[in-house]
Design a protein around this nucleic acid. Structure first.
Length: 119
DNA sequence: CATATGACGACAA
DNA sequence: ATTGTCGCCATAT
C-alpha cells in the first residue's frame, strides 16, 4: 500500500465519522486498514491542504483528550466545533464511552441489516 | 544509511 | 490524575 492509498483511506474514514461522535487516531488508522498507524493519521491531518473539508475536529486521542495544547487556537476551534454538534468537552477531553464512534452499533440502531442475525 | 520528529498509544510508577 | 518511558512508523534531513 503506497502513500497515496493510505492517505485516501484515512481521509475517507474520517469523512465518515458522524456528527456528534468522535474517533481516536488509532481507531481511524485501524479502520483505514493501517494497524498501529495512529501517527500516520496525525501526520496526514497535519499536512492536509487548506479547504479539505474533513471533520478533523472529530478526531481525538484514544484517551479522549484533544491533541492540541490548551492555549492553542487549534484547541479552541476543535472544542468549539465539537460543542457545536453536542459533544461535551470537559477539561480538554471528551467522554469516549459516550461519544466514541461505533460504526457497527450505528448500523444496528439506524439501519438494521439482517446480515448478522443468523447464519 | 543514521537520526530526528510527531495532531499517537499502552503501561508503569 | 499525572508524568515518564518505550514502542511504533512514515517522513524529513
Amino acid at each position: 500500500m503506497d502513500r497515496e492509498q493510505r492517505m485516501r483511506n484515512i481521509c475517507a474514514t474520517i469523512k465518515d465519522i458522524p456528527r456528534g461522535s468522535v474517533a481516536s487516531y488509532g481507531q481511524i488508522a485501524e479502520m483505514a486498514g493501517i494497524p498501529r498507524g495512529a501517527r500516520q493519521v496525525g501526520y496526514t491531518l497535519k499536512h492536509l491542504p487548506d479547504g479539505h473539508g474533513l471533520p478533523w475536529y472529530r478526531v481525538v486521542q484514544a484517551s479522549g483528550k484533544i491533541a492540541f495544547a490548551r492555549d492553542s487556537l487549534q484547541y479552541r476551534e476543535q472544542r468549539a466545533r465539537l460543542a457545536g454538534e453536542g459533544v461535551r468537552v470537559l477539561n480538554g477531553r471528551v467522554d469516549m464511552q459516550k461519544y466514541r464512534w461505533a460504526p457497527a452499533l450505528d448500523e444496528l440502531l439506524w439501519k438494521p441489516t439482517p446480515a448478522w442475525d443468523d447464519d
